[in-house]
């Protein structure tokens, strides 16, 4: 199939960006979206033009490196899918596709479609862990965990840290990302000792990083490639409120 791509090009963080238009021809429907961009880049290099920078790594939908707003939707039109797992059979011959980086104040553009998501790491560094120094652990079966709790914790823990939730949100809120971690650790017995300290520290760091507030539009859940539920946000807010009342 033949496609027209409108791609955001930006030299570096401080430079002004613009859309450039490219034609790609003879694209196989079996290609992934990123392989289609590989083809574009190979052709650009062969023509002596600087290739388009986009981030990607595992190409299996698990590392969270790939991003891209595809026609205004984070990770493109397929639900519950990262861009690397989106395939060209979802598009039609002659389609025009607009490709942009994540747009959020807390995710500055480094070049073209590459953004800096280190704000997420700094939030985790404030409390997204259980303090269990190596060597301290009791036997793995010493604390049975009810299966429903373990399953919910797992669903929250499935977050890949890609940032689609932020990109989808009109407020650029990181609530779903933070809530997923707060829920994952806060549901488990091992996570109880630091539960309220954790939620306070993480929410405060999120605010400091310049993410917006949550206004319950649920776009984050809709964009999440792992389909993490917004009920985690409600749970986070409850824990945060409790922490504040208790004075943590």
């Amino acid at each position: 199939m033949n496609l027209t791509l409108h791609i955001w090009r930006q030299e570096n963080t401080t430079a002004e960006g613009r859309f450039s238009t490219y034609r790609v021809e003879e694209i196989s429907p079996d290609m992934s979206f990123l392989e289609m961009l590989d083809v574009l880049n190979e052709r650009l290099i062969n023509k002596g033009e600087v290739p388009v920078e986009f981030e990607h790594d595992c190409r299996e939908g698990i590392c969270g490196t790939c991003s891209l707003m595809v026609n205004g939707v984070p990770h493109g039109p397929e639900k519950g899918t990262t861009t690397c797992q989106l395939h060209m059979r979802k598009f039609k011959d002659g389609d025009e596709i607009t490709i942009e980086p994540w747009r959020a104040k807390a995710f500055p553009v480094l070049k073209d479609l590459v953004v800096d998501r280190s704000a997420f790491d700094r939030i985790i560094q404030k409390g997204g862990y259980i303090s269990a120094n190596t060597g301290n652990a009791p036997d793995g079966n010493a604390i049975p965990i009810p299966k429903p709790d373990a399953d919910w914790a797992f669903e929250a823990a499935a977050c890949i840290g890609c940032g689609a939730c932020v990109a989808a949100c009109k407020n650029a809120s990181a609530s779903l990302f933070v809530a997923a971690k707060v829920t994952h650790l806060g549901l488990l017995p091992q996570g109880q000792p630091e539960r309220y300290l954790r939620v306070t520290a993480m929410v405060e760091q999120m605010d400091q990083e310049g993410f917006g507030s949550c206004t319950n539009t649920y776009d984050c859940e809709g964009a999440c490639p792992k389909q993490i539920s917004v009920r985690n946000i409600a749970r986070m807010n409850r824990d945060y409120l409790k922490a504040k009342i208790m004075g943590n």
């Binding site: 259980i130 269990a132 060597g135 301290n136 652990a137 009791p138 793995g140 914790a153 994952h184 488990l188």
Partner: peptide, 8 residues
């Protein structure tokens, strides 16, 4: 160790 860290 992994269970103690909260690996689900």
């Amino acid at each position: 160790q992994c269970v103690a860290q909260g690996v689900p």
